[in-house]
Simulated scan of single mutants.
Amino acid sequence: MEVRHATNPTDFKTYTTERLRKDFLIEGLFVPDQISMTYSHYDRMVVGGAFPIQEKLELADPDTLKTDYFLERREVGFLNIGQGTAVISVDGEIYELDRLDVLYVGKGKREVLLASKDSANPAKLYFCSTPAHKEIETRKMTMEQANPTHLGSLETSNERVLYKYIHADGIQSCQLMLGVTSLKTGSIWNTMPSHLHDRRMEAYLYFDLNADARVFHMMGEPSETRHLVVANEQAILSPPWSIHSGAGTSNYTFCWSMAGENYTFTDMDVVKMDELK
């Protein structure tokens, strides 16, 4: 597991593009028959990807976490972004996830195994894990059950559908929140005006991009913004003090996940357009 330390907005202003990418961009999430993980010191979130084809992969990293098992003091949310069906075993109980289905697994579950139902059509599992203070039941939610909300318009290039899975009115958790936003053809902005929430961090996974397409992810303080150029199936760590907007060279889908103090989806500080620089 790679470990990423936190920074502050004053030092951030001096970063080169190489340093920005090193600290905030996560590449290589989906390696065949491996689990790839990044441990962020922003709210102790672990961002990971699993690409099981022939092998059954166990969610574990005792050397980094210094615990007997991964979920000893954590919770985790899995999202299948692959075309094939994922098979997740949680202490022997089997759950199958089709594309854009989500599974929440709470604190205290000892063995979590990840596999694909068909090696010829494998799943891709993106996951985010955060510290947890109590045990909450394991729960699956399909895309159709995630209360899709239609937002934006084609006139402002941000027509999109928001799916909320793990949140106060959906799958319950200790602090993890997770959802998916999918942009319609012809739309490129995932949110604008931008916002931030100083009480929690956020991670973004961008996917459903063609090989030659890119998303320009905006970050930094509103008064001095920066950007990162992001390719398909790459993730971003967004600090609590940073805005997080993006514009693509085509439409795309992204998974957003949050961790921190507050557990309210609408807890955000909107940034007016004339404040952005």
Score class of each variant (00 low, 15 high):
residue 17 T to V: 10
residue 17 T to A: 11
residue 17 T to C: 01
residue 17 T to E: 14
residue 18 E to A: 08
residue 19 R to L: 15
residue 20 L to S: 04
residue 20 L to N: 10
residue 20 L to V: 10
residue 21 R to I: 05
residue 21 R to F: 07
residue 23 D to I: 00
residue 25 L to F: 11
residue 25 L to K: 15
residue 26 I to A: 04
residue 28 G to T: 04
residue 29 L to W: 00
residue 30 F to A: 10
residue 30 F to D: 11
residue 32 P to N: 14
residue 34 Q to F: 06
residue 36 S to Q: 15
residue 36 S to C: 12
residue 37 M to G: 09
residue 37 M to R: 15
residue 37 M to K: 14
residue 37 M to D: 10
residue 38 T to C: 14
residue 41 H to P: 00
residue 41 H to F: 05
residue 43 D to T: 01
residue 44 R to G: 03
residue 44 R to M: 08
residue 46 V to I: 15
residue 48 G to M: 09
residue 50 A to P: 06
residue 51 F to G: 01
residue 51 F to K: 12
residue 51 F to P: 04
residue 56 K to A: 15
residue 57 L to C: 01
residue 58 E to W: 07
residue 58 E to T: 08
residue 59 L to E: 11
residue 60 A to R: 15
residue 61 D to E: 05
residue 62 P to F: 14
residue 62 P to Y: 10
residue 65 L to K: 06
residue 68 D to M: 07
residue 69 Y to V: 06
residue 70 F to V: 01
residue 73 R to N: 15
residue 74 R to P: 02
residue 80 N to C: 05
residue 82 G to A: 15
residue 83 Q to I: 15
residue 84 G to F: 12
residue 84 G to H: 04
residue 85 T to G: 02
residue 85 T to P: 03
residue 86 A to Y: 03
residue 87 V to D: 11
residue 88 I to E: 10
residue 88 I to L: 07
residue 89 S to A: 13
residue 90 V to N: 06
residue 90 V to T: 12
residue 91 D to I: 13
residue 91 D to R: 09
residue 93 E to G: 00
residue 93 E to R: 04
residue 94 I to D: 04
residue 97 L to P: 05
residue 98 D to P: 00
residue 98 D to M: 03
residue 99 R to K: 11
residue 100 L to I: 01
residue 101 D to M: 10
residue 102 V to Y: 02
residue 105 V to F: 07
residue 107 K to H: 09
residue 107 K to E: 08
residue 109 K to P: 00
residue 109 K to L: 07
residue 110 R to D: 11
residue 112 V to E: 14
residue 113 L to S: 02
residue 113 L to P: 08
residue 113 L to E: 03
residue 113 L to Y: 06
residue 114 L to N: 00
residue 117 K to L: 12
residue 118 D to S: 11
residue 119 S to R: 13
residue 120 A to S: 13
residue 121 N to I: 10
residue 122 P to K: 06
residue 123 A to K: 03
residue 123 A to T: 01
residue 123 A to P: 01
residue 124 K to D: 05
residue 124 K to E: 11
residue 125 L to Q: 03
residue 125 L to E: 00
residue 127 F to P: 09
